[in-house]
Nucleic acid binder design. Structure first.
Lengths: 240, 240
DNA sequence: CGTTGCATTGAGGGCCTTCAATAAAAGTGG
DNA sequence: CCACTTTTATTGAAGGCCCTCAATGCAACG
């Protein structure tokens, strides 16, 4: 499958050929976004729904005093703002971290898509509930674990999510994050993120060089992270 | 208005008498939940949608090593789990913090309610987007502010939210949280939460005794907290 | 091949934690 | 309504995780 959203949804739902086709045609309006460019900025009025097709982006909030907080990473198959078109303005921004391909889908197109397709609608709902679960997991992670476990947790999560869209190969995947971005998403300073990554390497858990991560000991990393993937709700809609 | 959900939604939407009536009849199945009792537990299969009518609850997650993280406070007018009935099981629990009245609404009832009422549906959507915004704001708060500002921020937010449902009177409102709960929701220890509350009192910002909070200097508290209420998206649906 | 951004290292300090004891308050049963 | 128990709040001391500031090394890029 070449559309990462379809790959993701098929992990949990049984889409018809027709559903798949409808999704693909809805993703025709694709724009290239350069690295560090905003997909949508804080204060913008949301007009389109944005779907990541390739590359990475992040949801971020700039604070008064110059610091930044990253509240989500968006990878291929993730919606940036599925339901947000009814709001007056964005209360945060979304920026591309790498050159990215983003589908711009109009609200009417999306309404049309969901109105007649209950299975697809259920799958999209599932995806938004997972996104919310991820957000809660990040909150738990930041509030109750030390820096070492926080970074370990982040890596475990990204591994699972990328695996769901076919972007992991034998424990290896692209992790195009600077240490500052890792720090901004785990609530620490870049200096400390650096030291934690060194420790993860020294302990033989992973290698990370040039944006390529190689997970050497997934089991031990999960252990350290206290990682429980249940919040990603894998596979469940199929079973039900 | 006696139904807090209606009070909340009417801040942002123009509901018809018929909408209001439909909401009220959907809230007929009310159960009393004792303090410290779960409304729904982690692992439960969600069957009903739960709406807070009176009292406080919290969304929480217990970690391996015995610590706990509170990811949301639920006050009258808040849904506990509006969209969650399609998931296989709860990945976190919801517990009453005080004796509470909770409406149990069946999925079919809710579908029925939204199918024919676009204005109401929009308002409920708005509410879920605000909940998501609150979650992101908590993440930003915990990851990039010190303990003093974190607690200040929490109090600012609860002030706004309670004001929206008519539960604030001249800067005073009920805050039935233990210091441990404040700590579990701001990512600190109870000991430290205690010291921060003392500082807030000493600085003349508030008084807090017996679960009653009196906001003495709201402006200065917002300043300290770096509180920007835009994530609560007040008033916007009316304007649009 | 210089420039720019990112990664790395060191030293010093502060916010917050842990452990532990005590006081106060709230809940419980007779 | 009081004695008792349990929970919650408060205080102190010691220490660690992580921050701040600052310098240096390294790699990507035009």
């Amino acid at each position: 499958v070449e559309n990462p959203l379809i790959a993701k949804l098929e992990n949990v739902a049984c889409l018809s050929d027709d559903d798949r086709h409808a999704l693909i045609t809805a993703c025709q309006n694709v724009r290239d976004i350069a690295a560090n460019e905003d997909v949508i900025s804080e204060g913008d009025k949301p007009e389109y729904i944005h779907l990541m097709l390739a590359g990475w982006a992040c949801r971020y909030k700039d604070l008064e005093e110059g610091s930044r907080s990253i509240t989500a990473y968006l990878v291929p198959g993730d919606f940036c703002d599925l339901h947000v078109t009814i709001l007056g303005s964005m209360d945060h921004g979304i920026a591309a971290l790498t050159p990215a391909k983003v589908a711009f889908i109009s609200r009417t197109k999306m309404d049309e898509l969901t109105r007649e397709r209950p299975e697809l609608t259920r799958a999209l709902w599932w995806a938004t509930l997972v996104d919310e679960g991820v957000l809660r997991a990040w909150l738990v992670n930041i509030s109750r674990r030390d820096g070492f476990a926080r970074v370990a947790n982040l890596i475990c999560e990204l591994y699972e999510r990328l695996d769901n869209v076919g972007l992991v190969n034998a424990g290896k995947f692209s992790l195009p994050l600077t240490q500052e971005e890792i720090a901004d998403s785990t609530g620490m300073t870049p200096v400390h993120a650096n030291r934690i990554l060194q420790r993860l390497r020294r302990d033989g858990l992973l290698t990370l060089k040039g944006g390529n991560l190689n997970l050497l000991d997934a089991e031990r990393l999960k252990e350290i992270a206290g990682f429980d993937p249940s919040y990603l709700h894998p596979q469940h809609l199929r079973g039900a």
